[in-house]
Amino acid sequence: MILALETSCDDTCAAVVTSAGEIRSSVISSQGVHDRFGGVVPEIASRHHLELIGDVVDDALSQAGGSLPDVDLVGVTRGPGLVAALLVGVATAKGLAAAYELPLAPVDHLHGHVAAAFLAPEPFEPPFLSLVASGGHTLLARVLDRGAEFEVIGQTLDDAAGEAFDKGARLLGLGYPGGPALERLARDGDPGAFRFPAGERMAGVDFSFAGLKTALLYRVRDLGAEEAERRRADLAASYQRAIVESLALRVERALVRTGLERLSVGGGVAANGAVRDRMASLGVELHVPARELCTDNAAMIASAARFVAALPYPEYLDLDVYATGERILMAR
């Protein structure tokens, strides 16, 4: 069995997955301490990871009915993410693996999101187009096999889709993280009430959400505080539709460009109901993992660990983390 750890942002995660992709356990400890700062504070996140990781690993192993000597492979997120946070997971994973001279698989976080699709009971087999959208990343990839070498064909030029949700939520007074709150509010609103740009005039398959956030800011200002408050649900619904349409438009273009007819959606934004519904309407074979596999988790890291070249002991002892941009395989 595979034990995997994930600490790239503010969730402390460990999971046990079999080589066949069956999830034996997936433990996620969400810190929830960053809300008052309106964003993740790296030093606070890293301190919490260290506090939590031991119990999270113990829980993952005991829920799986195993112990460390039963583990065949240790997987860990190596990047991209917050360096200080990643280091807690990588140091822990290396220590656990080294104690029994187990092999260790360094996993790219984005490969993890893609590889969530390969988990049982209904693994989605390549080739497919993968949309990964979360608070940290937004990309489109052509996935031809299950390994780490997928081709990124589109990505965001500014904010991530999840960031657009959070920033919109803040402008509407919904606090942080505001994505789920914005989705709830949008259910009572009219998505056609206001017109927000979905980047229709921007060609290609790259994303941009910065203009959308600015458009909402101006609209709220123009309406005045009282009217904006009264029409908050309409604003939320219209804003959400713009994000969803922006994603859908590029997915459609990418499907045409690649000739792929199958689509997998992952990342925290894939937990949004409107996003799921819209992707389902595209008429291609669609795979969206369960919600708890869309947001950050370690089962997806274990899944990816099955398809990367694992490092035998002692080759990983000097393994370091990376914040961004070192994933050379992600050629455009």
Binding site: E43, A84, K94, G95
Partner: peptide
């Protein structure tokens, strides 16, 4: 240094826990 402390302690705990 905060990061240095965490690397040392995370490593020590993992080895101690495992064995």
């Amino acid at each position: 240094t905060f990061t240095g402390l965490r690397i040392g302690i995370a490593t020590a705990r993992a080895l101690a826990r495992a064995r």
